[in-house]
Amino acid sequence: MALPSDINPAELKQRLQKPVQVAGKSGARMVLSPGHVGACSGWETATSKITWTVDPAKVQSTRVEVGDKTDGKRQVFAAGGASGEGVAEGWFSAGVTFRLVDATSNEDLLTYTVEAIDCAQR
């Protein structure tokens, strides 16, 4: 879908750059900035900064895994202690799922799937 002629690209960019905050088990929190992509030509992918934290008294090591709905496979995006950050550069797109995992128990602490925002939505 092309960008409608009545949409201001600067306005759309501002809407799409809003961060998304997700909360989960064991004090898990993730912030994705931006947290969405656009459902129109030229706005389908983005570079997003992802930060996460957990309660270190409950979880000492974490992994962030990514995958999509089509095959269910997961790949490690980042791993470390009770907090961290990474950048999804150029492949952050609708349908990509991020999972924050307790690396010791392999339990999913939170899940977020990137959504596309309708470019014409105001």
Rank of each mutant, 00 (worst) to 15 (best):
L3D: 06
P4R: 04
P4D: 00
P4Q: 03
N8Y: 03
P9K: 04
A10K: 11
L12I: 01
L12H: 00
K13D: 12
L16V: 03
P19Q: 08
V20I: 15
V20M: 14
Q21E: 15
K25P: 13
S26P: 14
R29K: 15
R29M: 15
M30C: 09
L32W: 06
L32G: 13
S33M: 07
S33R: 11
G35I: 05
H36N: 11
V37A: 00
G38R: 01
C40A: 09
W43N: 08
T45Q: 14
T47E: 09
S48V: 06
K49R: 14
I50Y: 06
T51S: 14
T51E: 12
T51R: 11
T53H: 11
T53C: 09
V54Q: 04
D55H: 07
D55K: 09
P56H: 11
P56A: 11
A57D: 11
A57E: 14
A57F: 06
K58P: 10
K58N: 08
K58T: 07
V59P: 05
Q60H: 14
Q60R: 15
Q60I: 10
S61D: 12
T62L: 05
V64K: 04
E65T: 04
E65N: 08
V66L: 13
G67K: 04
D68E: 07
D68N: 06
G72M: 04
G72N: 09
G72I: 08
R74G: 08
V76I: 11
F77C: 06
A78M: 02
A79L: 15
G80M: 01
A82H: 10
S83A: 09
S83W: 08
G84R: 00
G84N: 09
E85D: 10
E85K: 07
G86A: 02
A88F: 05
A88L: 03
W91S: 04
F92Q: 01
F92W: 09
S93T: 11
V96W: 01
F98K: 02
D102E: 01
S105K: 04
N106V: 04
L110S: 03
L110Y: 05
T111W: 07
Y112T: 00
V114R: 07
E115Q: 12
I117W: 12
